[in-house]
Structure formats: structure tokens, C-alpha cells
């Protein structure tokens, strides 16, 4: 298997600072005055119930959603996040008229750049879908499709990766495998993972925030011991689950 060195090219992952984030549907703010720091080269998880605004926060960092007037999203080195962010959603959004390789290289195609087929094939191989390179998306299982979507995200080779519940539509075993794969392939990048699954957050997160309340705020982060991906049965993962579930439930009152 190729090492990460050949698969990623321009890694110099910055930290990200979000300050005074505000987003409102009409008059009711989902969150207001929210601050968050994503540490450089590490996984930050934001855990919260559906509709709390965690996807909106992620979209704001991705530059897809504009915040309030005071909202500032910037990298730790002072530059903007534009052009340094790759985005992966819950649904794979593979284009049904393109085969696996063409889907994986969609970004270059959209920008009118030359397609790096060697790198695409190496990444597909590393993601365990090298055999399916010429298959059409509708021939693949849900897990394989999400693997291709992960490769497509990696092909962007951005230092910051934002993931919005990318594994939540998968069955438990496939989800565990994909979590391990994501940690391996996204090493050294600054990652924000938004999820509603405490186990997923505890397996993957260097820092885990619970997003709760209305307008929503972030609590103090939980920093489980050990490197991701953690075993599902590790002591910190088990005790962390109890704490996270308690915090989620408290916010729901």
C-alpha cells in the first residue's frame, strides 16, 4: 500500500478559529456568539442532536453559508479558509453518469485541471475500492460508495477536511471500517467531524464538543486518552459515552 507521503502533496494543515459565529432562521438564532478553535492537524468532533445547528456551523466554516456581521472564520496563520477546505457530506453525491475513477477526480474536472489518474488509482486502492475503479456508482454498496466519496474528498488534497455525518447512513460494521480508513487517510489534516453518534466522536475525536441548547453553545471539550481510532471497548470510550449522553440529555431539557 502506498504511504500517505505519496498520496498527499501539500499538507501544512493550519488551525482554524471561528469567533462570534451567528446563524438564524428568521428571527430565531440557531447559535449566536459561538466560538470554536480547530487545532491544527487534529480531529475535532462536534456532537449534537439533529437540528441544533451543527451542520450550519460546518457549512459556515466551508464558506457555503455566511454568518453574522461579527462572524470571523479564519485559519490560524491569519489567511482565509477559501480554497483550503474539502467537504464530505452524509450522502455520497456520486454522479450516476460517471464511473468510480471519474467521480473520484470530479474536482479537477470541475476546475478544468489535468486529472491525476495515478494518484486517483492509488487512493482508490488504499481505500479498498481499487477493483471497482471502472464500475458505475449504482453497482456499488453503500459502504463502497462512501469509500469513493472519501477518495474524492482526498483527491482535493486540502489541508482542512470538513465532514458532515459522513458515516451515519452505514451499518455498524461498515461504519467502524470506514472510520478506521478515514483516520488513516486523513492523518495530519485538520478535520472537523459533525456527528450525532457519541461512539463515533469518541473513536475519532482528539477533542469533542457537545453542541446543545437554543441558541446553541459549545461546552468544554472532552479529550479522550490515546490516538484515534480508539477501540470501541476502550475505557475512555466507554466512560466518555456515559458523559456525552448525559450532556446531550441535559441540553435537551
Amino acid at each position: 500500500m502506498p504511504t500517505n507521503g505519496t498520496l498527499s502533496q501539500n499538507l501544512n494543515a493550519p488551525s482554524i478559529e471561528v469567533s462570534n459565529a451567528r446563524f438564524a432562521y428568521g428571527a430565531r438564532p440557531l447559535f449566536d456568539g459561538l466560538n470554536l478553535v480547530l487545532e491544527a492537524g487534529r480531529w475535532t468532533c462536534v456532537l449534537g442532536p439533529s437540528g441544533v445547528g451543527k451542520s450550519s456551523l460546518l457549512r459556515m466554516i466551508a464558506g457555503l453559508l455566511s454568518g453574522g456581521n461579527d462572524t470571523v472564520v479564519r485559519c490560524g496563520d491569519g489567511s482565509a479558509t477559501a480554497g483550503r477546505v474539502a467537504y464530505m457530506a452524509q450522502r455520497d453525491f456520486l454522479l450516476p453518469w460517471l464511473n468510480v475513477v471519474d467521480n473520484a477526480t470530479l474536482g479537477a474536472r470541475l476546475r478544468g485541471e489535468a486529472v491525476d489518474l495515478d494518484r486517483a488509482n492509488a487512493l482508490l486502492e488504499a481505500a479498498g475500492v481499487g477493483e471497482a475503479a471502472n464500475a458505475m456508482p449504482d453497482e456499488l454498496s453503500g459502504g463502497m460508495r462512501q469509500r469513493v466519496a472519501l477518495v474524492r474528498t482526498l483527491m482535493e488534497d486540502r489541508p482542512i477536511v470538513l465532514m458532515d455525518e459522513p458515516f451515519s447512513a452505514l451499518d455498524a460494521i461498515t461504519r467502524l471500517k470506514l472510520q478506521d480508513l478515514a483516520v488513516r487517510l486523513l492523518a495530519d489534516r485538520t478535520v472537523l467531524l459533525v456527528t450525532h453518534d457519541p461512539l463515533e466522536a469518541l473513536r475519532l475525536g482528539d477533542r469533542i464538543f457537545v453542541m446543545n441548547g437554543s441558541p446553541a453553545g459549545l461546552g468544554s471539550p472532552l479529550e479522550p486518552a490515546g490516538r484515534p481510532p480508539r477501540e470501541a471497548g476502550a475505557p475512555d470510550v466507554l466512560s466518555g459515552q456515559a458523559r456525552l449522553l448525559r450532556e446531550l440529555a441535559e441540553g435537551g431539557k
Partner: peptide
Amino acid sequence: GLLDMARTMD
């Protein structure tokens, strides 16, 4: 969501 993805791909 597809348009979001395309936009983050510049």
C-alpha cells in the same frame, strides 16, 4: 448538497 460540494471544489 451536490452544489455545495461543487462549490467547495472551487
